[in-house]
Deep mutational scan, measured.
Amino acid sequence: AKPPKTVTVKVEVTNADGETQTRTVTLTNLPKDLKPGDTVTLPETGQTARIVEITP
């Protein structure tokens, strides 16, 4: 079996106070056609994050 493909992405997350924070997260099994501006759900927090940058 192939190991899951991990991708490092820079995302913007809005916290409970309405502040936008930029975080770098490593995600696995992202859709192939994901692009900056799309939103993903962070598995560890369940927060919705907007992708700023994808590092191949």
Rank of each mutant, 00 (worst) to 15 (best):
A16R: 09
D33K: 05
K2H: 15
E53Y: 03
T55Y: 14
R50M: 10
V13S: 03
G46R: 04
T6H: 14
V25H: 02
D33Y: 08
P3L: 10
L30N: 10
P56L: 10
V7F: 06
V7A: 08
E12N: 05
T6V: 11
A16E: 11
Q21K: 11
T20G: 03
V7C: 08
V11M: 05
L42C: 07
T28S: 11
K5A: 14
A16K: 11
V13R: 01
D17F: 12
T39V: 12
T28G: 15
T28M: 02
T22R: 08
V25M: 03
T26F: 03
N29P: 13
T24D: 10
K32R: 05
K32I: 15
K10M: 10
T55D: 11
P3E: 12
T20I: 13
P56D: 13
T6M: 11
D17Y: 11
Q21E: 15
R23A: 09
G37F: 02
A49V: 11
E12Y: 03
A49D: 00
K5E: 14
Q47C: 06
L42K: 00
T26P: 04
A16L: 09
V25Q: 01
R23T: 10
P43V: 07
T41I: 13
A16Y: 07
K35M: 10
V9Q: 00
K5Q: 13
P43R: 07
P36V: 14
V52W: 00
T6F: 10
V7L: 09
P36N: 05
T20Q: 06
V11R: 00
K5M: 15
I54G: 02
V13Y: 14
N15P: 02
T39S: 08
D33W: 13
E44Q: 09
T48K: 13
E19R: 11
R23K: 13
T28H: 07
K32A: 15
L34N: 01
T48C: 08
P4D: 13
G37H: 02
D33F: 08
T39G: 03
P43I: 08
E12M: 11
Q21S: 14
K35Y: 07
T41V: 15
Q21T: 13
L34A: 14
L34I: 12
T55W: 13
T48R: 09
T39H: 11
T24N: 07
T55Q: 12
N15E: 07
G46N: 07
P43T: 08
T22G: 03
K32F: 05
E12W: 03
P4E: 12
P43L: 07
Q21W: 05
K35T: 05
K10P: 00
A49Y: 01
T26H: 14
A16W: 08
N29K: 05
T48G: 04
L34E: 00
E19V: 14
K2T: 15
N29R: 04
L30C: 15
L42Y: 03
V52H: 02
G18Q: 03
P43N: 06
P43E: 08
N15S: 11
N29W: 06
V7D: 04
P31G: 15
V40Y: 05
K10Y: 05
P3Y: 09
D33E: 14
T6Q: 13
L30S: 11
V11C: 04
L34C: 07
N29S: 08
A16Q: 12
K5P: 15
T6P: 12
A49F: 01
I54Y: 04
V52M: 07
D17I: 08
A1M: 11
P56W: 04
V13T: 08
L42T: 01
D33T: 09
E44F: 04
Q47N: 04
R50S: 05
T41Q: 08
P31H: 13
L27C: 12
I51Q: 00
P4Y: 00
I54N: 02
L34T: 08
V9K: 00
A1I: 12
E53V: 05
K2R: 09
P4C: 14
K5G: 13
T55R: 11
V40D: 00
D33C: 11
V25L: 05
Q47Y: 02
A16M: 10
K5S: 13
D38V: 04
A49S: 02
K2W: 12
T26Y: 04
L30I: 15
A49L: 02
E44I: 10
A1V: 12
K10H: 05
P3R: 05
I54S: 02
T39Y: 14
V25A: 03
T20W: 06
P36T: 08
P56F: 06
P43Q: 07
D38C: 04
V40N: 00
K2A: 15
N15A: 11
R23C: 09
E19N: 12
V7R: 06
V9C: 07
T8Q: 12
T24A: 02
P4Q: 11
T55I: 15
T28F: 02
L34S: 08
P31F: 13
A16N: 09
D17R: 12
A1S: 13
T8R: 11
T24I: 11
L34M: 10
V9E: 00
T48V: 15
D33L: 08
K35V: 07
N29Y: 08
K2S: 15
D38Q: 05
P31Y: 09
K5L: 13
R23Q: 10
N15M: 12
I54P: 01
V7P: 02
V11E: 00
P31T: 15
G46F: 02
T28R: 06
P43C: 09
G37P: 00
K32D: 15
N15V: 06
T45V: 06
R23Y: 11
T20R: 11
I51R: 00
G37R: 01
P43K: 06
P56R: 09
E44S: 08
T39E: 10
K2D: 13
A1P: 13
A49Q: 00
T20P: 06
L42P: 00
L30A: 15
G37T: 01
Q21D: 07
P3Q: 11
V9D: 00
T24Q: 04
N15I: 06
T48Q: 14
N29C: 08
K2C: 13
V13H: 03
G18K: 02
T28E: 14
P4G: 14
